[in-house]
């Protein structure tokens, strides 16, 4: 049983962490472990599809503020880049899921629809780096989901309540924990990767232009993917958050509640409140 990140890591001392998550889910819903695993596998496949659909096909949307972003990044990823082809392809996948979401395509919310690109992009990247099979990806997604359940329970994942740090930030925390798990990091490293990811984007506001889930949402999905994989690597290197992970979750929550309403999904602050942002909203 776990209600905190510390409890999740402690429960994983004598069995794999994804089994801890499955056991709690089974106790909550009476579903069998096999059903839980296969349901998560189905969600992983939806994620993978959404994170690849726009790589070579710009998705139709109104207004097309982010149409074609994924393909642009994917094409660039194949040439000379600063951070390398793999990292650029990861960003292209995050942008793909964001485009699919904005075009009324099928996605898996994780933890929200607006943040649906982070986890598939990061776990796909980590799967490729570690040479893992699909079953390992599903186990990592279960671990990520356990971390997400703790944050949902003890803080919030709603942009209207906690800003973008609660949506894309939580997605990054979940993805970082899953990526560490794929790389066979310790339970402690998993929860510290999540904490480092949250620390790295604490206070990030939610300021969607014209109230649409497009800009800056797709870039936040891509950049929080980079945050997640960087946090995972730092935790795997042995870095630890000085503030314990559960205190970081609580700090994220309190920070979110302290944000003015204009910066919590109302499209009245940040880049949404710029002259150009307001003009786009007016022309809808």
């Amino acid at each position: 049983m776990y209600n905190t990140l510390e409890q999740l890591a402690a429960a994983a001392a004598d069995r794999p962490m994804h089994e801890v998550v499955i056991a709690d889910e089974a106790a909550l819903t009476d579903a069998s472990p096999e059903t839980i695993f296969e349901t998560m596998r189905a969600r992983w496949r939806v994620m993978c599809e959404s994170a690849s659909l726009a790589l070579d096909a710009p998705q139709p949307m109104q207004p097309p503020l982010i149409a074609g972003q994924s393909r642009r990044q994917a094409v660039y990823a194949r040439g000379a880049t600063l951070t390398g082809g793999a990292l650029n392809e990861m960003m292209a996948r995050a942008l793909s899921a964001s485009e699919v979401n904005a075009s009324m395509g099928r996605i898996c919310a994780a933890p929200t629809a607006g943040a649906c690109g982070v986890i598939p992009a990061v776990l796909h990247f980590a799967v490729q780096r570690t040479g893992a099979e699909e079953d390992e990806a599903v186990k990592a997604l279960l671990v990520a989901s356990g971390v997400g359940a703790v944050i949902t329970r003890n803080a919030t994942v709603a942009g209207a309540e906690g800003g973008c740090q609660a949506e894309c930030g939580t997605a990054a925390a979940m993805a970082a924990a899953g990526a560490v798990y794929l790389a066979h990091g310790s339970p402690e490293a998993c929860i510290h990767a999540a904490a480092i990811a949250l620390v790295n984007c604490m206070g990030l506001i939610c300021d969607p232009v014209a109230g649409l889930v497009q800009f800056p949402c797709s870039f936040r999905n891509a950049s929080q993917s980079v945050n997640a994989i960087a946090s995972a690597d730092m935790a795997l290197a042995g870095q630890r958050s000085v503030i314990p992970p559960d205190e970081v979750v609580d700090a994220m929550y309190r920070t979110g509640r302290a944000l003015p309403a204009s910066m919590r999904e109302t499209a009245e602050g940040g880049v949404a409140a710029t002259p150009t942002g307001r003009r786009i909203a007016k022309n809808l």
Partner: peptide, 12 residues
Amino acid sequence: IFDVTGPVMIGP
């Protein structure tokens, strides 16, 4: 966990 990683849905 399926309320966290989910639902599978049509965006946005």
